[in-house]
Amino acid sequence: MKRAAAITLTLAVAFFYLPIAVLSLFSFNRSALMTFPLDGFTLDWYRELSGNTAFLNGFVTSFLVSQPVGILSALIGLLAALALASPGLRGRSVFIALLVLPFLVPKTVLSIAQAMLLNWAGLGRGATALIAAQTLVAIPFTTTIIAAVLVRLDPRLEEAARDLGATPWQTFRRVTFPQIRGAVGAAYSIGVILSLADLTISMFLAGRTQPLSLIVASQFRRELKPDLNAMQVVVLFLTGLIVFIGEYFRRRRRVHAPAPRKETAHV
């Protein structure tokens, strides 16, 4: 059984990392044609990339959009998770249905409907619309992450704080929040990552804002060039870094407050 598990995991990792590995490989390949056999090692594509202002501007735009998305989606996810974890919530199933909605509705349909709403309301598309739409789509994820930790907290700690005369805000600030800080951090990084990874929403709502994914997509339709590979490897590296930092925050929580059961991402 142990060997079967090892083989399964090896195959799964190979499947998940195959495309990424191939991309990285070609970003160091001398030939401009992305075909095998490989031609030899070069850093030229990275050098070319550093001179490509369109890509660099796109990257800055994507980064600037992803920050408010991360912060807002973590904040709204925190509110939603606190409400979900409270026993006094009426209309729970309606609230859950609303929370699942942005996940269930195809992004194309949702974005087009939002674009129609903006148009009808006389509002323009652009960075604000993009940030709002990306935040909405991230909310189901951020809520799940925070709620998964919140429901496993020991309720006696909050009760004790209240019995000792703490106001609800003090209880939250001094007792609850320190225990879920890691999950809120992880939610923020998920928001940032979903924003950076998005193309569909940007296609319909970005207006004249040009995030990196849109620039890459327009290149993609014309031709495949290895500096695009280099670009992707850089983006992947940065994404990996964000994942790593998010995971670091999530793990740190365990040191402060050991949970009865291990981490899960499930409400």
Binding site: P19, M34, A197, D198, V235, L236, I242, V243
Partner: peptide, 29 residues
Amino acid sequence: ASVILLTPLYTGEIVRIYAWRIVLGSEGL
């Protein structure tokens, strides 16, 4: 294991599509 499993999910939609084109193309991997 769950982090390793989830990381590729965080790559951009367009990146994944683009990578598969290189893997599966007629002169691909």
